[in-house]
Simulated scan of single mutants.
Amino acid sequence: MKQPLNSRSSLGFTLIELMIVVAIVAILAVIALPSYQSYIQRARFSEVIAATGPAKTAIDVCVQISGADCAAAGTNAVPPTAVETDYVEKVEVEAVGTDSWVITATATDLLDEETFIQVGTRPSTGGRVTWENNPTTNPGSCVAVNLC
């Protein structure tokens, strides 16, 4: 004669087991969600960083070809209609003397109007312009909020 099946084994999960699974999922969500949100903000801010590219290239080419009024060349490379997007408000180019330039990209209010600043310097021996985002001397506000 066959032994009857244990009715307990055929019922599935107990309430305690389901509550443990729900608690684990909730803990993972609490840990992962802030991390994911910060990742999304950094990904959006990369568009602001990329918006400085045309100005940097224009200044680099200007330095190599003529070396005269390279700030104007950089400004012409980033007209407002070309750089304004959902995340980029503006890109400004400023000459600092004859051998240095500052490019400031400003995010829109969707990214709290954070700024990204690049400083370019022409070497005294010629060659290409060296660009840097120096967090100690000219950081931009994106450094403090860990977006760049």
Rank of each mutant, 00 (worst) to 15 (best):
R122N: 03
Y39P: 15
A50W: 15
I59E: 14
I59N: 13
W101N: 00
S7A: 14
T75W: 04
D69Q: 03
W131A: 05
N133S: 13
V48N: 07
V88S: 03
A32T: 14
T14M: 15
I27V: 11
N138S: 12
D109A: 02
A72T: 07
I59Q: 13
T85V: 07
P4V: 12
E114R: 10
G12T: 10
P34H: 04
L5V: 12
E92N: 07
S100D: 02
G120F: 14
L111Q: 05
G12L: 10
T75L: 07
V61G: 02
T85E: 02
F13V: 05
T81V: 13
V91L: 07
Q41G: 12
C62E: 06
A105V: 14
V30I: 13
D69P: 04
T104F: 10
L111T: 09
T137K: 04
A51Q: 09
K2Q: 01
E89V: 12
Q37F: 03
C70F: 01
G97P: 04
V48K: 07
C148Q: 01
V93W: 01
E113I: 10
V91F: 09
Q64L: 13
S7Q: 15
E89R: 10
Q3T: 12
L28F: 11
S100T: 04
A82N: 12
S141G: 04
Y36E: 10
F116G: 00
G140E: 01
A95H: 07
E47W: 14
A73I: 02
E113Y: 12
I103T: 08
V22L: 10
E84N: 10
E47I: 14
E47T: 15
V96K: 03
K90Y: 15
Q41A: 15
I16G: 10
T108I: 04
P4D: 15
V143K: 02
A77T: 02
V119P: 00
Y87D: 06
S66P: 13
R122P: 06
V119I: 02
N6F: 12
M1A: 01
D99F: 08
I103M: 02
P34I: 06
A23F: 09
T121M: 13
L110Q: 07
K2C: 06
D60M: 04
L28W: 07
I40N: 09
G53K: 09
A51K: 12
T106C: 03
T108N: 04
Q64P: 11
A95N: 08
I117Y: 11
A144M: 07
E92Q: 05
V61C: 01
C70M: 01
Q3C: 09
L18R: 11
Q118T: 13
C148P: 03
S10M: 15
T85I: 06
A82S: 11
Q118V: 12
